[in-house]
């Protein structure tokens, strides 16, 4: 008898494509958040699969701190060129210049947290009603509590104690004006699934993920790259 089984990667892929298509069907102005990291690369790959032979019916958006590695920018731009992707760049530097956020000071200064303001402003300015992202539940314990379709109020806030129940694969994307959704198509993937999928599908990734020689220093047990944006002491 013929084997009608799917492997775990095929099942995960099908689930993610289903979620991405739901987004395209339920929202008027969705966007795919794209950082150039492996998870968002996989999400973009899934989106291209979901609508083939059509092009992806939504733009991508990079919330850019300006403090990324050069390789990442090159990779991002090449990928957009090769796939005809529509990329919007939301710049944290602009938010700083406009006085919306203030740069952190000191040795641990990072623009990571400032991204929230830039992201929320960009969602509002572009009138996006849904932002998809490559967050996975296995990454972090608060993310383990996320729904696939995660509601955000008109301030962009998440209320983890009052989330909508999510049953079967029926996703409720109904919202009031000004609210939006975050949707996580690869919620159920693990780091290993992502790598196995990259291998199976032969997906290009930035060389930063591969072993290379780099000028680094150690801080609090973490190996940091020496860049213009990091104070070494």
């Amino acid at each position: 008898m013929k084997n009608y089984n799917l492997s775990h990667l095929e099942e995960l892929e099908s689930e993610s494509i289903y979620v991405i298509r739901e987004v395209a069907a339920q929202f008027e102005r969705p966007v795919l958040l794209f950082s150039g990291g492996k998870d968002s690369i996989v999400c973009y790959h899934l989106a291209r699969k979901a609508f083939y032979p059509s092009s992806v019916p939504f733009p991508l958006m990079h919330v850019d701190t300006g403090h990324n590695f050069d390789e990442l920018y090159q990779f991002r731009d090449q990928l957009m060129k090769d796939t005809n992707g529509r990329l919007i760049i939301a710049s944290v530097q602009n938010s700083i210049d406009k006085g919306k956020v203030v740069e952190e000071k000191g040795i641990n200064a990072s623009r990571n947290k400032l991204q929230t303001t830039t992201l929320l402003d960009a969602i509002e300015e572009n009138k996006f009603d849904c932002a998809m992202g490559g967050a996975r539940r296995d990454e972090e314990k608060a993310r383990a509590k996320e729904r696939f379709f995660s509601h955000r109020d008109d301030f962009g806030q998440w209320d983890p104690k009052n989330q909508r129940p999510e049953l079967w694969n029926i996703f409720n994307g109904k919202k009031h004006f000004g609210e939006h959704f975050r949707v996580f198509p690869i919620s159920n993937w693990t780091e290993m699934d992502v790598w196995q999928y990259i291998k199976k599908e032969n997906i290009a990734i930035p060389t930063l993920y591969l072993s290379h020689n780099r000028d680094c220093f150690e801080r609090d047990g973490v190996i940091m790259a020496k860049t213009d944006f990091v104070q070494t002491k």
């Binding site: 590695f69 790259a225 944006f229």
Partner: peptide
């Protein structure tokens, strides 16, 4: 140092790991 990144974010908050993994198979391992 021989390093690679396991997760990529802003260079100010992303740490590297010591690694000699030069291709996907070695990363998976």
């Amino acid at each position: 140092m021989q390093v690679r990144f396991r997760t990529i974010g802003d260079a100010t908050c992303t740490g590297a790991v010591l690694s000699s993994a030069k291709n996907i198979d070695e990363i998976i391992q």
